[in-house]
Every structure is written in C-alpha cells, then in structure tokens.
Design a protein around this nucleic acid. Structure first.
Lengths: 243, 243
DNA sequence: GTCCATTTGTGCGTATGTATA
DNA sequence: GTATACATACGCACAAATGGA
C-alpha cells in the first residue's frame, strides 16, 4: 500500500487514499470518482485540499477530469514505461555535430509508386527531390542521402549547415510533430556503394524517416544508406512516467 | 509573443506575461522572480491566481521553486524535444506478442575479452549464458538469441513465455532502470545463418541490448541476429516536453 | 432546440506552518 | 533567533461546460 506517514500533508494522504482505492478496483476504470463536494463532506476537508489531491492523480495519469462531467478513472496504476528523449531530431542519428549534406541534384519530380507508398502521397504528385552525400568535416562520405520535400515547402532555401527540416520549420512557421523512423539492413545498390567508395554488394543500414506535421501530413521523407562497418545505431531508454 | 486573448483566464494571462518576460531576458536565468506577495500587489490579483500561473511555469520547466528561497528562473524557453515512450521493453522489438525463446544451451561460462568489454564486466567472470532461437507461434525462427545473465541473478528460472528480464525483476525485486540498445548491420556468421535457415553470408541486423539497474550495473546482456529480409526496426518520436 | 441541475474551473480572502537565508 | 517566502488549509462566490429532462 502507498499510505504515507500521518505526518504527510493532508492532500497527500487523501491522494494515497484514492490511489489505493483505484488500485484495488473499488473505483473501477471507466467509472466516476465521487464529486469534489461529496469528497469534501465525507472526508471533512476543504475543496481546496480535495482539488490538490485530484490534481496529483491527474498528473499521475490515473484519472481525467472534465468540467461538468466529473472525474473519471482511466487507469488502475500509474503508467510506467521506458522513455527516450532527444533534444533534437538530428540526434536520432547522433552525428558528430559538424557533418554537412553536399547536394548533388535538386529538382521537382513525380513520385513513383514506391515513393508514393512510403510518403504516403498520391502517385505522380510532384515533390522536390534532393540527392547528395553526407560528409564529415574532413570531407569523408558518411552516408548517401535522398530527400523528398512536400510541394508545399519546395520553395525552401537549402541551408548550408543546418538541417532541412529545421529550415522549413523556420521559413514556413510549421512544427514537426512526430518522426517515424525505419531501419532496414540490406545490400547497398551499386550506385550507392560506389558513391560511398565501398566494394560492390557490401552491407549497409538504410534509414527511412518521415517528418510529420500536426495534421498528420508528411513534410519530408528522408532515405539514407549508411555503410555497415562504419555505423552503429544506439538508443538509450530510461524508466519513467509516460504521460 | 505568446499573449493569449484577453478572454483567457487571468492566471493564463499572467503566466504569458511572466513567460514573455523570461523569454526576453527581463528576468535572467539564475535570478529570482518577484515573490508571490509582490506579484499579488503589482498585478492586483489574489495569491491563488499567482500560484496557478507559477505552477504552470514550473510544469513548463521555466522556473523552480523552493520554500523559503523563492522562485528561480532556470530556462528562457521551455525544453522541447522529441520523446519516444514504450509500454514495455519488449516493444523495443515490436514482436508479435506471442513469440517465445527456445533455449538450446544453458551454462555458467567465463566471459571472453569481447564479452567483458560489451557487458561491461571483468574478463573471466562466470556469467550464465543462454543460447537459443526466438520463434513465432507457428514455430518459424525469427532470430538467433544469446543472453548473458549476471551471476547475481543466475538462479532465475527460465520463464516459458515471458521475458527473462521480467522474470528476474519479479524474482529478485529489482527494476531495470535503463536499456541501451545498439543496432549494427552485417553478414551473419555461418552458425547463425544456418540456424535461421538462411543462405550463407546473408545480411542481418544485430541487436545488442544491455539492461541496467539503478546502480548502473548490468543485469543482463542480450545479443540477437535478425535476418534482414524479414525485419524492419521502426521508432516513433513525438514532440513533447522532456522532463 | 431549450432549460436546468450538476460538476468542475476560476478567482478572491484569510490564517497558519515550515524551510531558507 | 528573526525575517522572508513558499506550502498547506480553511472559507466563499460565480463562470462555464456537461448531460439529461
């Protein structure tokens, strides 16, 4: 049980009381908690105190509240999972800060069927297509890159050093809401392995990333090949509350 | 500027006011905000209202408060990054729920130099080593698995279906605090490709995971090979506060 | 669609406790 | 020890959203 010592603040003791009741199923998930007024009366405390306790249950993700509707139980236990947080999208790749993209081709181009399926968008729509090499400060090739930019943002200027998605965010006042990343291993196509100076048929990791806006549309799609012997992808997940 | 419409709640307007002042540097990072009493007086509102505004600034990570000391500015802008959250560590792999590990070998074994570097632990220490195949419910091989378990937990019984880390958590009352995962592409060694029924020298993804406890020690190390043509690794990152 | 009782949201006033400097 | 500043806790009133009659 979570019962705190009797010296704990009143709202904390009430929070524990309700938390335990929810945990034991005395208030079922989906059901309503007593109203603030009822809790005030049965527990003989002020509404202020009840509200502080309920506020903490909301923060813990155990209940949700809606004006006029009441307080509903949404979970028996605090949601507890693993969380990875990144300061920037770039750190998805954990590049040394100073890599840059050397663009070798830039043009508007109709999406192939495969492109359209990956984006997703309608086949034949004309998106901005960039091709290039990502190189480190010594000029060594790190990855072969290909970027498809939504026609909505095709007017963006190519930033010399910063990321394309960031340039679009700034120029058009939009914000990337979600990034979906896929990693696939495979044998690099000949054009890629030669561009990276590798032997034909050598192994690489393919990263496919979609940058999504709040309305769910794709801002840009990025497809990169990394040579296997040069590249390791590392993630760290910490235990924490999920929200 | 973040100024909400004048119809917004009073505390929200005050929050915006302070947020802007902090953003513009009128309250420098490291300095103290006016006290609640001062804000009450200058803004002509009640202490409750001030406290609600300040509470939100705390949640946004802009200020911290300490009883007796005051409210200190800790950041000019809300910390804002990408967050990935997982309900369980298993979902790192996004297996269909019902895969299982068929263990083909289990014994205590001294760590090689390479093992010891990866764990990390002292070379020659005797850890529990498991070898097996992860198979789906139809019995098809999904991955070749190898697990090294700290001698502290070597007494664990092998769970028929659930994960080993979970069995250890339950049996020994410990909790995995962090998971570090590395992904590398490469050509599978002959023993692995034959165990998975693949052609020799075919391509795969190697997943290396360390499960760390709160004291930073490694509970177990897991090394898996996934055939490339069967496997894609996907992550979703959402925009959110980092904490 | 309107009205109405219910329930949480917002806002104010006041008093006392407790950690900090 | 003393003054300060936030934390806890009581009270009241009205606004706004909800859901059913």
């Amino acid at each position: 049980m979570n019962t705190p010592p009797p010296r704990a603040p009143l709202y904390a003791r009430i929070e524990a009381l309700l938390r335990d009741a929810i945990g034991e199923g005395r208030y079922a998930v989906g059901s309503l908690l007593p109203t603030e007024a009822e809790l005030c009366e049965t527990l003989r405390v002020s509404r202020h105190t009840i509200r502080e306790a309920l506020r903490r249950l909301v923060e813990a993700g155990l209940v949700e509240r809606r004006q006029g509707a009441g307080t509903i139980v949404v979970s028996r236990e605090p949601v507890h999972g693993m969380v990875q947080s990144l300061r920037s999208i770039e750190s998805l790749f954990q590049y040394a800060a100073d890599t840059r993209l050397d663009v070798t081709a830039r043009r508007m181009q109709a999406l192939t069927a495969e492109d359209a399926a990956q984006v997703p968008a309608e086949e034949g729509a004309r998106w901005l297509r960039l091709e290039g090499l990502r190189v480190d400060q010594a000029g060594r090739a790190i990855a072969a890159a290909e970027v498809l930019v939504s026609p909505r943002f095709a007017g963006v200027a190519l930033p010399p050093h910063s990321a394309i998605y960031a340039a679009i965010e700034q120029r058009f006042g939009v914000e990337v809401q979600e990034v979906v990343q896929e990693i696939i291993a495979g044998v690099m196509p000949p054009t890629v392995s030669s561009a990276l100076g590798r032997k034909p048929r050598s192994v690489g990791l393919r990263f496919l990333r979609r940058y999504l806006l709040a309305d769910g549309s794709t801002m840009l799609l990025s497809r990169n090949w990394h040579p296997a012997e040069r590249f390791t992808y590392t993630t760290r997940l910490r235990r924490g509350a999920e929200r």
